[in-house]
Amino acid sequence: MKLKTDVDSSDATPNLFAPRRRRLFVGKRGIAASSLSTAIVFGLIVSVLFVTPGGATVRYAFFNPHEMWVAWIGNPRIGLLAIRDGIFTNVWMFLVSEVLVLSLGISIAWIRFSQSPVFLPFRLLATLYTDILRGVPTLLVVMIVGYGLPTLNFGFLSHQSPAVYGVIALTLNYSAYVSEVIRAGIFSVPHGQLLAARSLGLTQTSTMRRVILPQAIRTVIPPLLNDFISLQKDTALVSILGAIEVTRAAQIFSATVFNESGLTVAALFFLALTIPMTRYTDRLMARDRARRLASS
């Protein structure tokens, strides 16, 4: 009996050409088609600002070029802070936080992998820490640290600027995430690496430091950068404590001038900050993927 799955035994030459309608967008016509569809989609999105009843108001309140410029350079005569002067605060807050987050995150991940019985309380603490700090909204952590530490009235801890409390809060919060990312990286290192290192007589600590962590961190660089992008944005939350940074300056601008274009400027600042990082992360991930495909 002849089955349907049998190989084609006829001598007919198969037709390999795509049907006409699927040949429409090949070559130059493809480029034209993609340009046209892009223009239409983006045009539709922007048109929302023009066809909606409140469109004109929104354009005036959020995208007024003159007000945006004033928000950017400030106006000392009426006591307006310049958004550009707030940039420094955001930048140092996230730079310092990122360094602290990385070291604290690695330490926490390391502690959770330690086996020494002496470390048991620290292991419990580290687990508790990551559970709690991952579960509490960043804004609340900022507020609790920012209002809590001064109230403690405990030496230098209680006499810092809002930006410093912001750094502490962001560090506490993001270290919990980053320690989990690093832990995932540690889990991703093949068990054979541990066996090889231990069988060379390396101690648990040396194995971690020389063999496991270097590989773990390399694999988690893209997710790590993702967390850092998120951290950069979240410096805006510190405005709640009164730190004069970009968002705060923008808020003051809109409260004084009754125009929200300052918020747009602040948003553009954060985009200028995060987009290069996002692109870089994407490129790293693509390279990582290509390398993995090549090696398998």
């Binding site: 054979g192 690496q193 066996l195 090889a196 290192a197 231990r198 069988s199 007589g201 270097p214 590989q215």
Partner: peptide, 16 residues
């Protein structure tokens, strides 16, 4: 382990 060398089926060289 410092007195015993071990070699594995999957080499387990350190890639980094």
């Amino acid at each position: 382990r410092r007195h015993i060398g071990m070699v594995f089926q999957s080499f387990n060289l350190f890639p980094h």
